[in-house]
């Protein structure tokens, strides 16, 4: 079952190997980023590189999360280049109703509290739930479809449900998957949120202009690479360079 990992794990003794496997499973399956101090394979840079290589086999990478006066924590995410390729594959993109519901939750639970200074700039997790009624009104989805979309979003860990308390309204907040964002993904999401919440704002215009010029530069680079590859007869596919 582990032939995939064997070339990476082969050289380690049993103890190290078990530590690597534990760290890999922890960053892949824990709900939240795991503390570095608990996992030797995350603490030691050489072992951590191997964990990173294990993740890279499936297009994943390690993400170090913000330290709040404590020890660093780690989780895993799709590498940016892999995320981009997956997003171009229609089968890998959630259907429009799920995306619409998730966007509404991000606007209500993150963008609005952030704009009023209630949430720090870099947090995608929020204690401010979006009420079901709000989702129903704004999404204009029939209740059955809305509930099915919420069920799938919750299963995917993209949305969490908050139960109503005596003084608080229940609803939905961004789920634990929002820990799993690389720096570039956080930036992109931030931009998407600005485009969704204030499409006519000057900031949105700046983002669109920047993307436009970036896309143009990328297509020029791709064209240059393609002509280079044709000349050299194509390159051997290898692992991509490590993310930071």
């Amino acid at each position: 079952m582990s032939e995939l990992f064997e070339p990476l794990l082969r050289s380690y003794d049993e103890k190290r190997r078990a530590e690597l496997v534990a760290a890999y499973m922890a960053v892949e399956h824990a709900a939240e980023p795991v503390p570095e101090v608990r996992f030797p394979a995350l603490r030691e840079p050489a072992l951590r590189r191997t964990v990173e290589e294990m993740l890279a086999l499936s297009g994943r990478t390690l993400v170090r999360t913000a330290v709040k006066g404590g020890s660093p924590r780690w989780t895993s995410a799709y590498r940016d280049d892999v995320a981009e390729a997956l997003a171009a594959d229609p089968a890998c993109v959630p259907p429009p109703d799920e995306r619409a519901v998730l966007t509404l939750i991000l606007i209500h639970s993150v963008a609005i509290p952030r704009a009023t200074g209630l949430l720090p700039d870099d947090s995608w997790l929020s204690p401010y739930p979006t009420p079901l009624e709000e989702l129903r009104r704004r999404s204009q989805l029939p209740i059955g479809e809305l509930e099915a979309a919420l069920r799938r979003l919750r299963l995917a860990g993209l949305v969490s449900q908050v139960k109503a308390g005596p003084d608080e309204q229940g609803g939905f907040v961004p789920g634990p998957q929002f820990h799993r964002l690389t720096e570039a993904a956080r930036r992109r999401l931030q931009e998407e949120l600005i485009l969704a919440a204030g499409p006519g704002s000057p900031l949105a215009a700046t983002i669109r202009a920047r993307r436009h010029s970036r896309a143009r530069a990328a297509s020029q680079q791709a064209a240059a690479q393609q002509s280079g590859a044709q000349q050299s007869g194509g390159a051997e596919p290898t692992h991509q360079g490590e993310n930071e």
Partner: peptide, 15 residues
């Protein structure tokens, strides 16, 4: 033909 430099088997596993 996906516009990506990701090795095909890595992308297939990610998918």
């Amino acid at each position: 033909s996906a516009p990506s430099s990701v090795p095909a088997e890595v992308l297939a596993r990610a998918r």
